[in-house]
Design a protein around this nucleic acid. Structure first.
Lengths: 344, 344
DNA sequence: TTGTATGCGTTATCAT
DNA sequence: ATGATAACGCATACAA
């Protein structure tokens, strides 16, 4: 109860309980080697003195930090507008919290920067494990982590990008199938996609899957890459609608772009979904709040975060982790998609 | 270059350079007490061996962690849908990165939980400073931090809530003035507000300011509290539009609710802004992407994060910090607000 | 300038 | 069962 101003160490507890420091350590860590009576006494004294083990000392002695590392690329707009990262962090945090782990977050200004932060964390043992996100094709971080096998690492990405590293994999290709099939069943034979930056690994994966699936079904397909902003999404929409024949359905890689597209359609007098169907890749409150509601590919990102955290904890415990699948995408059909318009 | 499998310590570097460990320490920390030649030699050897100081050992010896603590309340929906937290983290991270600090994040399941995490961090010296967000009226965390003056803390909240703690304060009252004045000038004399949860300190502050400003101007004012979700926003909107006389303008405490309101209006055949003006408190891509674009109170949250970080670093350096003002809100006028409709 | 010795607060080993 | 004592890896006061 009494809040001590000065640091209270294990020796203080030992002195106050009339035993030695090692007895205290044993007692407080629930280890054998100490009688029940002294254990009880020590525990009580420790509580009275408000003793807690110093984190740095504990880390040093046990070579464990109880921290998991996460490096975020600095792009406030992207981070803020996409619910993805915050959802993932929520899931990670919830799971880690139960195991008394924390998340160590660092912001990198560019990818060189990111590499050096990772190197630093590895070399200084600043974290017990690391999470790798937003992998690019041939990402140098993979090689970096392979050279430091003593540091557990989990990549969240398509398994084809992670070169055998423990991976939490999303089946983006399956999601592409869901989306295209939904539109195909509605009669659409000319669809377009407004994607994110080309460098991102998942853009590449989706690109390939879209090309393949649409080719199989004999559906016309076109893709425009953007920087994920609503302005870019609106612009791409205008361009797509001005070609001939214009696509009857457009899939956007995020929800703000889909929302912006609804605006473009409204201004241009294009009726959604009667004349144009609109879909969003990631689902969020925005898709629900929009009018018309936006059909979207939904996945439980919070749950992914939880899974990622539990996998990292396994890795820390020395267990093997190969490739684990994320919860699958589900199609949330709302009002923004409908039967393809009849043309010519 | 050679990646060492085994831990390389300062003694290894000392041995390899033919000097003592203290010389190594001095050399690597750029401190005087060592000749330039040995310094150069040590630096080279350290680089060759891939040496980096062990974080735990450094923390223990210096009683500094180079970490800042942040406890987030677990509400994935709220966290994800509001760009606020991720924007703030971006700003914090960017500033901390420059000073080689990291952000230690923990998720709390309820407020008791949050208190105990803070107590733990304070007792174990797990962070060099803490950031307090989302304060409630008479928040217990304030008392907690006051009892542990050795741990620097910064609160981000209205100064009236922080009881003298170092504070980064937002002038929500001024923002209320901006918003109400904008609507007043457009002729609105009956406005409503759809707010967030009543418990939040900022809800309270805004409530009071709205009541005051509208009373002063002789504007009719009503407020409904919600849980911030679009469904609740839509519901509140319907209720407000069904009373007589219905408000001619509604201000929403976040942007998804404002977006949902546009949907309600569209479905109900209520023209925005001709028959109803809509405003959002926080601005985001969503307000820009919406159709019509949503007039919003905009503030630079990323910059707030940077300021918060730099203030905490000052506190860590032992400087005094009192109350610092956030960058002010600005009104971003878009298409969702217009002249009040003429009514009897 | 350089090297030795000690403190930081735990955990863990080894006698007793 | 208990109590000295040695790591853990770095920083630093002090001695040489």
């Amino acid at each position: 109860m009494a809040a001590q101003k000065t640091k209270v160490t294990i020796f203080d507890v030992a002195k106050a309980s009339g035993v030695s420091s090692s007895a205290v350590s044993y007692a407080l860590n629930g280890k054998p080697g100490v009688s029940d009576t002294t254990r009880a006494k020590v525990l009580q004294v420790a509580r009275e003195l408000g003793w807690k083990p110093n984190g740095a000392a504990q880390s040093l002695a046990q070579a464990k930090t109880r921290r998991i590392g996460l490096v975020l690329g600095y792009d406030p707009q992207l981070l803020a507008v996409e619910p993805y990262m915050m959802s993932l962090i929520s899931g990670l945090g919830a799971e880690l919290e139960e195991k008394d782990y924390s998340l160590l977050v660092r912001m990198s200004m560019d990818s060189d920067d990111e590499d050096s932060i990772i190197e630093d964390w590895v070399a200084t043992s600043n974290v017990d494990a690391m999470l790798l996100l937003n992998l690019e094709i041939g990402d140098p971080r993979i090689e970096l982590m392979k050279q430091n096998p003593q540091m557990p690492v989990l990549a969240v990405a398509d398994a084809s990008l992670t070169a055998g590293l423990p991976t939490l994999a999303s089946d983006d290709a399956a999601a592409v199938g869901l989306a295209v099939r939904h539109l195909y069943d509605l009669g659409h034979r000319n669809i377009a996609r407004v994607a994110g930056p080309e460098e991102l690994g998942h853009s590449y994966i989706r690109d390939a899957a879209f090309s393949e699936v649409t080719a199989e079904l004999g559906v016309r397909y076109r893709c425009l890459h953007t920087d994920y902003t609503p302005a870019a999404g609106a612009d791409a929409t205008k361009r797509l609608l001005s070609v001939n024949p214009a696509p009857t359905a457009i899939i956007y890689d995020n929800d703000v772009m889909a929302l912006a597209a609804e605006g473009v359609a409204a201004v241009g007098g294009v009726k959604v979904p009667q004349e144009l169907s609109i879909m969003s890749w990631d689902d969020s409150f925005m898709c629900e709040a929009a009018h018309p509601g936006i059909t979207a590919l939904n996945r439980d990102i919070v749950e992914s975060g939880r899974i990622a955290a539990s996998l990292m904890l396994k890795l820390i415990d020395g267990e093997e982790v190969d490739v684990v699948e994320e919860p699958p995408y589900e199609l949330r059909v709302r009002e923004s998609t409908g039967p393809a318009p009849q043309r010519d």
